[in-house]
Design a protein around this nucleic acid. Sequence first.
DNA 1: TATGAATGAGCTTTCATTCAT
DNA 2: AATGAATGAAAGCTCATTCAT
Lengths: 214, 214, 214, 214
Amino acid sequence: MQKEKQSRREREKLRQRQELLDTALQLFSQKGYHNVSMHEIAEKAEFAIGTLYKFFKNKEDLYRSMVLEQADEFDVKLTEAISGPDNEMEKICRFIRVKGEIFTRRKQMIQLYFAETRGISQNMLASMDNEIRTRHQRGIEKLAEIFESGIENGFFRPVAAPFYLAIALDNLISSFLFLWIEDPESHPLPQGIETIKAIFFKQILNSGEDVESC
Amino acid sequence: MQKEKQSRREREKLRQRQELLDTALQLFSQKGYHNVSMHEIAEKAEFAIGTLYKFFKNKEDLYRSMVLEQADEFDVKLTEAISGPDNEMEKICRFIRVKGEIFTRRKQMIQLYFAETRGISQNMLASMDNEIRTRHQRGIEKLAEIFESGIENGFFRPVAAPFYLAIALDNLISSFLFLWIEDPESHPLPQGIETIKAIFFKQILNSGEDVESC
Amino acid sequence: MQKEKQSRREREKLRQRQELLDTALQLFSQKGYHNVSMHEIAEKAEFAIGTLYKFFKNKEDLYRSMVLEQADEFDVKLTEAISGPDNEMEKICRFIRVKGEIFTRRKQMIQLYFAETRGISQNMLASMDNEIRTRHQRGIEKLAEIFESGIENGFFRPVAAPFYLAIALDNLISSFLFLWIEDPESHPLPQGIETIKAIFFKQILNSGEDVESC
Amino acid sequence: MQKEKQSRREREKLRQRQELLDTALQLFSQKGYHNVSMHEIAEKAEFAIGTLYKFFKNKEDLYRSMVLEQADEFDVKLTEAISGPDNEMEKICRFIRVKGEIFTRRKQMIQLYFAETRGISQNMLASMDNEIRTRHQRGIEKLAEIFESGIENGFFRPVAAPFYLAIALDNLISSFLFLWIEDPESHPLPQGIETIKAIFFKQILNSGEDVESC
DNA sequence: TATGAATGAGCTTTCATTCAT
DNA sequence: AATGAATGAAAGCTCATTCAT
């Protein structure tokens, strides 16, 4: 019973922590790190300022935790998408689809994510920066492996190093997703995907038929 | 003589202004807008704080001026690169080359430029933001026109809308340039250019030979 | 008990606020608005600068609050003095007495009050200025009503419009009070009151005896 | 010739000084000491800031000089008014008239003058303050002498000490002048003068006829 | 001699963080 | 354990004053 109570309390604590992280995400992505005060976060999340500092030792820590949490989810999903027994084209199609879904559901997060994965972020924490980059790097490497095995079994043509193919694809996807986010009416997602297929896959696929399945 | 003196003073003033802008660029791109104080800029540039305020009416104005100056140079050069009487492939080759040169000479600036041209920046000035984006947009449109005319006269294959081709190319270039900036040894520029050619141009060119000329 | 605690805290808060207002009054009236810094007020009142800003949202707000508080007390007391069922002469005697008492107790305040009620103050807040003037105006009008009814029932002689009589009396009182404040030994209050009686009341009273009662 | 040139130069200098003082009066009385910058004064007077400092060693000195100059003029005129061989009533009539004229011509100055002659001024310079007060004091004493001699030769009734009569009259005049300045339409000057006569002179004059001559 | 560019002390205000309750 | 009042370092900015030209 003591244990159960303990765990109930702990669950409660985790829930509160999550609430703070969610509020932080919302405010930080809306206004940027320096334009959000700890008081504002505490107030919006309906906690006392002191409580905020029980969960996160300072503003940086809160920001760091929030970004890492977001990156975690991002990476977990993308890794999932390109794992499993399916063939390479299917994996890549799923990669595109999942990346699109994440973008759709979390426009907020994207700003943060890209701010951090690009060399753009001037954010305090070299360490956080590195951690996120490393993770993104690993994602890219996973994707590269797909291309590698795809090339090995004759699915793709070796038009470039697998790593570069992964880089190219990842960025092409992002480009069109950004376009779509900024103006969804003028640039619907399917159009972006079509373009990627037309430019990228027509070139690297040995047989063009499979592209349609995406 | 009076006139000469006048212009000497004015030149001196411009030089000082430029020095301040350079210092500001350096600090802002290293640490981010909110982590640089006006005193820090003044001190680093070896001016009194009051002098800083003679040149720029406030911090925002300084930042704005600095970013716009950078964007100006960026855009002027890129626009130059894709103007003139040459054929489309040559223009695009020059575009790639010039973009690479700019990246090479001004790593600092790039962070800022991308921070602003993407939807990432939560920076105060919607107006500045818009101005830069508009300019970048125009650059893309110029590039799109190249593709359009290239398609019209049978140089390129109409694999996608010219605007999307421009988006794709611009982003592919940036991707590999970033790669190179982060780790020039592992990812030399020529390799990036090769990849772009292999993926992008092999696909859209009607005749493959010209790619070599880049 | 909860309630009591609440009210204790609130009382404490009000006490602190009052302390700040008192310090502000002291410094502002000694040195003038622009010659007192927020840090100086905070230090003298033994609060941290941040605490000062918890109570007043900026310097102007602090000044405004302080002046209005003073004016409030001033006006409340003077209005009280000339209200009630007594005859006109008694009211006016009380007006003189109360005005004297206020001057006695609050030399500081007077400087501020006069700075504001005269056309002298170039103080930022037209609104505050107006509010205080309006209030002073109302006080004068009340006094004028006394003269009016005093004239109606034959107590005073209609030597001038009631409003002008009020103006004249109010200023005569102030004149002698200032004299006394500047040098109480040479110009004791009773002498001033005697002079007002001799000049003003001898002239407007229908029967001279009542003057003695003041 | 050298001398003449010298004096021409000196006259020129004086003219410039006067121009600066005039500009200073205008700005200071409009906006208050702390809301006017030395640059603003220099610019409005069309002098270089350095030149301003050639004439006045600092802001305080400029302000001081300007106020004293104004007070000088004020006092000179009022002293003139109550000097000469005329009888007391005529002198006092002239005093009222001249004070009115000064008010009329120089609303600006009045604010400053009163700000300084009352205990109101929190202005830096105790010395200036004292000088002006002393001067004002002397003016009052001159007026008191009039009353004294007027009493001596039976012109006025000794209803109060001459000094207090002077104080009372001076303040009554100011009161109605202020009233008139604030709202000339509702409170024309003649009405104020009538009231002073009715209240003050009816009481202290031995023979009422002369009042009309004012 | 007149100029005005340059200076930097000092102002108001914000906000991350602490700690007594 | 949770609270939020209190703290004070540090920011952006102004302006009186100086001094090289």
